[in-house]
């Protein structure tokens, strides 16, 4: 079985006080193997991010299935129990956005180390890895022990990427992580993604500037308007 097998996935919002439904996407079917990178293309507002959120279960898919080959067995992300999804988020599923949610009095190092600690690693070891990761994203060393609440936008993004990509994941959902990055950080990100892909991590991404990562892409689905999906393989 492929790592991810999505069948007839559909998302509609229902807004009670408007008494109406809003169609987002419908009847999506695709598969993804370990180590594959799939790009989601399409114009603004066609539900690219919503697809990622449905797979991460921030949104509940309205119908369809998304079978994921978790380490402990296949599980349908659209119907799995909340606690199973929470477990997958700690161990196998990652979601990368461009926004950091810093907390007061938590240093950059701690913030980056947390996902490792949540996965069961000891603090000292996690902090050690956090140093390397922050370094690879080019955050200046004097800032490592500082609180990201006070950082500039660019610095926060580096911390954010380090945090999002530090823990080993089997499927990464990338929601425009390169938007508004400076070129150096963008290059670090590309390098990191390439490295992860080589390790067998599967990725599904929405990119504002897909040219940055085109060399990594194995396939693309293009969401156009509702229910209309074009899938083609990039060489």
């Amino acid at each position: 079985m492929p790592l991810l097998q999505v069948e007839s996935l559909t998302k509609r919002f229902y807004i009670d006080h408007l008494q109406r439904e809003i169609d987002v996407f419908a009847d999506l079917t695709f598969t993804l193997e370990a180590g594959q990178f799939m790009l989601i293309g399409g114009a603004n507002g066609v539900g690219k991010s919503s697809l990622l959120r449905c797979l991460f279960r921030t949104y509940i898919p309205t119908s369809g299935t998304a079978l994921f080959a978790a380490r402990q067995g296949n599980i349908d992300l659209a119907h799995a129990a909340d606690v199973d999804i929470a477990l997958l988020r700690r161990e196998e599923l990652g979601f990368v956005t461009q926004f950091l949610r810093p907390r007061p009095r938590v240093s950059a190092l701690e913030l980056v180390a947390e996902p490792l600690v949540d996965g069961g690693m000891a603090w000292e070891e996690a902090i050690e890895q956090a140093r390397e990761t922050l370094d690879s994203f080019g955050l200046k060393q004097p800032l490592w022990s500082a609180y990201p609440t006070t950082f500039s936008g660019g610095e926060q993004q580096k911390v954010n990427l380090a945090r999002a990509l530090i823990a080993p994941r089997r499927l990464l959902l990338l929601d425009e992580p390169t938007a508004s990055l400076d070129s150096a950080t963008r290059q670090s990100l590309q390098a990191r993604l390439a490295e992860l892909k080589a390790q067998g991590v599967a990725m599904i991404g929405v990119f504002h500037h897909p040219e940055d990562i085109l060399h990594l892409v194995d396939s693309e689905i293009r969401l156009t308007t509702t229910s209309e999906v074009i899938e083609h393989v990039v060489d």
């Binding site: 509940i60 309205t62 978790a70 402990q72 067995g73 599980i75 349908d76 119907h79 799995a80 129990a81 909340d82 606690v83 199973d84 477990l87 997958l88």
Partner: peptide
């Protein structure tokens, strides 16, 4: 009530 969830399987 439309969406049914499975019982926990991984935990």
């Amino acid at each position: 009530s439309n969406h049914r969830f499975d019982a926990p399987r991984l935990v």
